[in-house]
Design a protein around this nucleic acid. Sequence first.
DNA 1: AAGCCTGACAACCGCCAGGCT
DNA 2: AAGCCTGGCGGTTGTCAGGCT
Length: 335
Amino acid sequence: MGRSPCCDEVGVKKGPWTPEEDEKLIEYIKKHGHGSWRHLPRNAGLNRCGKSCRLRWTNYLRPDIKRGKFSEEEEGLIIHLHSMLGNKWSLISTKLPGRTDNEIKNHWNTHLKKKLLLLGIDPVTHRRRADLELLANLPNLLSSANSSTRMTNSWDSALQLQADAANLVQVQILQGLLQVLIASSPNSNASPNLNMNNLLGSSLAPLRNITDILQANRQLEALLNGSFGLAHGSIPSASTIQMPNNYQALPLQNQPKMNGNENQQFPFHSNTPSLVSASPENTTSASLKQEQINSNEISAANSESSTPIDPWDALNLSDPNGADLGWKEILEYVP
DNA sequence: AAGCCTGACAACCGCCAGGCT
DNA sequence: AAGCCTGGCGGTTGTCAGGCT
């Protein structure tokens, strides 16, 4: 049995609140408290449903709400907490005084998600994006395809051949897709061959560091957006992206060895949290999450005396001079 | 100048959990 | 125990301002 919605009354006003309505709501709550939200509108002389009044109050009119731009520390904390909790905005908001869950949710959706995507990080899993995974694996795939011709006739090699064939098909599909996109791009005369070489050339020369990954990813995104020629001018090239002096590429965990080339590195994996097994949506109960936060997680993000067991310690959110590349530093490279 | 597009954010909607009767 | 009420939550949509063509 579903309950009747509180806002289905005919003639109840919806949409943006006027200053007069705000004034009425503030005055009423100042005098009487909100009490029952359901009955508040009638008592306060508002032609709104109670739910609308509650949202307006909690998300906008409450006196303790901090408005304005999010600081770097707040952004870092949001990313940190989101990696552990997923889209539990109300829980996240309890750790950012003065910020509402709605405000944090909006900021995530409009700013932080895009920043992470630009950095090649999946905002859901906080891990490398799958498309970058494919790009980073291109040299591996091509190399394995070459070496597969020297295989013996064992079952293992037969299976390897089958896997290699599948990989090669993937590569060919990707190349074909890119060629079609370049050919159909309105800016396709903007040195498409050069750009294609830049991108696919990376499949021959290993993607060694953050700048390679970023450039490859941005070129791919620009191609997929059908605006490569234009974007080529606006996207910073690998050489224009300055890394911090203390930047050091970190080994990629769980990454297969690249045919004896031990220099295959990607910085994000080690620097991004591994607390989430798959999707944050799969995290455990709210109480457990709260316990996680309340344990040393928050202080770990903001204190140098935190225990080193948390991978997020590497983020060093409160220490811009820290030895590791943290979110603050990473975010500086994103427009 | 006008129309279109995009980004930011306020507001709404539907669902759920917990308390009450 | 079952049904209802209320508040809370997360996802989605609507609105509007500013930039672009």
